[in-house]
Design a binder for these strands. Structure first.
Length: 429
DNA sequence: TGTCCACTGGAAGGGAGGGCTT
DNA sequence: AAGCCCTCCCTTCCAGTGGACA
């Protein structure tokens, strides 16, 4: 074989059985350890759908990585499996009263699709036939999208289960009109039935809902508690067994450490799996025969850095300028900044880069957005007669993040700003 | 006790940008 | 081409506010 840039890497032995996806949080395993009860609860609600009736609407609450999405998607897969068995089977279905074919799941992640129009459009486009046209991603009046959605769903008798993941994001951004329409859709359908499953990180988001919507939506409620370290360990062990060639590649310590680190972060199974996967990738890259705890710590660092980098890179230009202003002020000796100071620095940076600065009102919002992303720490503080404002500090490594920002071609690197001179003197007195 | 600072954060609305309809 | 619709990003305006200070 001709030497090739990839040959060395291709020859290096991999510790994986071949399916790395098993360690991804999106992979849905055969069993979901410590979620059996919830699966049973959900199944007992959803079985109604197989009978051709409308299951109760369900609201599921729980922090990230507590298995909410996994449980719902697990049930969806089981229904799909029943459909297949139904087709493959040479026998008539044993239970006449069940009609699996009529059940249709629609999954929408409201963090990705976060507008009234977008959600309706996406649901509508899941019901296509040779006559129906795609609902365009903008342009139709809302009423028309809704009418078309109803028509499509009602075309043949079916039970539609609509899963709205990260529902709190949708509600906080676009209000509850989607839920209002979807939850009353059944009264306007002739032969089909629609049931809703809402998934939310935030227990309190129903407070913002119209009371009618709240009661229709919350017919059943499930709250998923965080996993503890032992449970996380079980989850990881199960996947490790499937993913690796032998059990020698990874000791119990490694699994236990991943579980412990993730348990500290409110029992997040997603984080635990990411740690394990990245640790394995690092070990592999270092051509180590096995994964050890050092790899896990490295993985922890890498994940944290990647998150920050990703968040910063995807920021819109003005937000980058604001972030840049905060970081530069910090390296120029400011410990904590006020909104006014950030704005002054931002304004100067914008002018240097030849951009029209936005108003201070807008920058207040951008600072809050940066705070929500965890890139800065901003809290409102009163200085008595010297006013009331936000106190802002970066919460990411400064120099590294500055470098990341300066990679953007729209950002003009800045060394010193006038703004750093005068106010600092004043503040330090 | 009242004043007053430096904002905060809500409300309303403009206008650009995507696209459809007639 | 003109007239819609919906979303996004902003601006303008402004009432409200925590607490040091007189």
């Amino acid at each position: 074989m001709e030497p090739n840039i990839f040959t060395t890497y291709m020859q290096s032995k991999t510790v994986f059985k071949g399916n790395k996806d098993i360690l991804r949080p999106t992979y849905i395993p055969e069993q979901l350890p410590h979620r059996e009860d919830y699966i049973n609860d959900m199944a007992s609600i959803m079985v109604t759908a197989l009978r051709g009736n409308r299951p109760s609407n369900v609201l599921i609450f729980g922090k990230t990585g507590t298995g909410k999405t996994a449980v719902v998607r697990y049930l969806e897969r089981e229904v799909e499996r029943l459909k297949k068995e139904d087709l493959d089977s040479e026998f008539e279905y044993e239970f006449d009263e069940f009609n699996v074919e009529r059940v249709k799941y629609v999954y929408i992640n409201c963090e990705v699709v976060d507008t009234h129009y977008g959600v309706m459009k996406n649901i509508g486009n899941k019901f296509m036939n040779e006559w129906s046209e795609q609902i365009p991603f903008t342009g139709w009046p809302m009423e028309k999208v809704y009418e078309s959605l109803k028509e499509r769903i009602d075309e043949e008798p079916r039970v539609v289960v609509i899963i709205l993941d990260e529902l709190d994001k949708l509600v906080s951004k676009s209000g509850d009109s989607v839920l209002y329409h979807l939850s009353k859709i059944n009264s306007e359908l002739k032969q089909s039935k629609v049931s809703l499953i809402g998934i939310s990180n935030n227990l309190k988001f129903t407070e913002f809902l119209d009371p009618r919507v709240r009661s229709r939506l919350g017919e059943e409620k499930l709250i998923f508690p965080p996993y503890n370290a032992d449970q996380l360990k079980d989850i990881l062990s199960e996947r490790v067994e499937r993913a690796f060639k032998s059990d020698e590649v990874m000791s119990d310590d490694v699994v236990a450490l991943c579980a412990a680190l993730a348990a500290q972060e409110h029992g997040d199974a997603r984080r635990a799996l990411d740690l394990l996967r990245v640790a394995t990738e690092i070990a592999e890259r270092e051509q180590c025969p096995s994964v050890d705890t050092n790899h896990v710590y490295k993985a922890k660092n890498k994940i944290e850095q990647d998150c920050v980098r990703e968040a910063v890179i995807t920021l819109p230009t003005h937000s980058k300028n604001v972030m840049y202003a905060i970081l530069l002020s910090r390296v120029n000796g400011f410990k904590k900044l006020t909104t006014g100071e950030v704005y002054a620095a931002y304004k100067e940076i914008s002018i240097v880069s030849g951009m029209d600065p936005l108003t201070q009102r807008r920058i207040t919002d951008i600072i809050s957005e940066l705070d929500m992303l965890g890139l800065v720490n901003a809290r409102v503080k009163s200085f008595g007669r010297r006013g009331r404002t936000k106190e802002i500090q970066p919460s990411v490594p400064e120099l590294e993040t500055i470098r990341t920002i300066e990679q953007d071609e729209n950002i003009v690197p800045v060394k010193t700003l006038r703004t750093f001179e005068e106010p600092r003197q004043m503040k330090l007195i």
